[in-house]
């Protein structure tokens, strides 16, 4: 069973004020049914500074081919050199099935809650 981010509690807003959270808005359908186009989320940009992602995490990653484009995907597998990222809606997702492994340095944040 996939886990989806829960609504942000007050502490998440405190972290936002402290610069420990960023706001993002989802565009596109690759994370359906849990995350829809237009959903707003909080992201921890420091989540993976000291640790690696875990399987099931919803993460932000730099697109492997397009500069300045961040994508949102789910960690399917954690490997030695990076993660295998997939969309929850594989019919409308371009992910590791096309691009292969995402190096850890390309994964830039963890979704923590819905804002």
């Amino acid at each position: 069973m996939q886990k989806y981010p829960e609504n942000a509690g007050f502490f998440e807003y405190v972290l936002l004020l402290l610069g420990r959270r960023k706001r993002i808005r989802v565009t596109g359908a690759s994370m359906l049914p849990g995350l829809k186009d237009g959903d707003e989320l909080f992201v921890d940009p420091y989540a993976y500074v000291a640790t690696h992602p875990e399987e099931g995490d919803i993460v932000l990653a730099w697109h492997p081919r397009e500069a300045d484009l961040k994508i949102i995907k789910r960690v399917s597998m954690v490997l030695d050199n990076g993660c295998w990222l997939v969309g929850d809606n594989p019919a409308e997702s371009t992910d590791s099935s096309q691009y292969g492994i995402f190096a850890f340095k390309r994964i830039v944040g963890k979704v923590t809650s819905r804002s």
């Binding site: 942000a8 007050f10 807003y13 936002l16 004020l17 960023k22 706001r23 993002i24 808005r25 989802v26 565009t27 596109g28 359908a29 690759s30 994370m31 995350l35 186009d37 707003e40 932000l60 697109h63 397009e66 484009l69 961040k70 994508i71 949102i72 995907k73 969309g87 019919a91 409308e92 997702s93 371009t94 096309q98 804002s115």
Partner: peptide
């Protein structure tokens, strides 16, 4: 909460596919 939230910019992140799908 909205007051706090709206003080910070929101960044769009892509959950698209960039193949012909869709």
């Amino acid at each position: 909460k909205n007051l706090i939230k709206n003080f910070f910019a929101v960044e769009e992140v892509s959950a698209h596919c960039d193949g012909p799908c869709g």
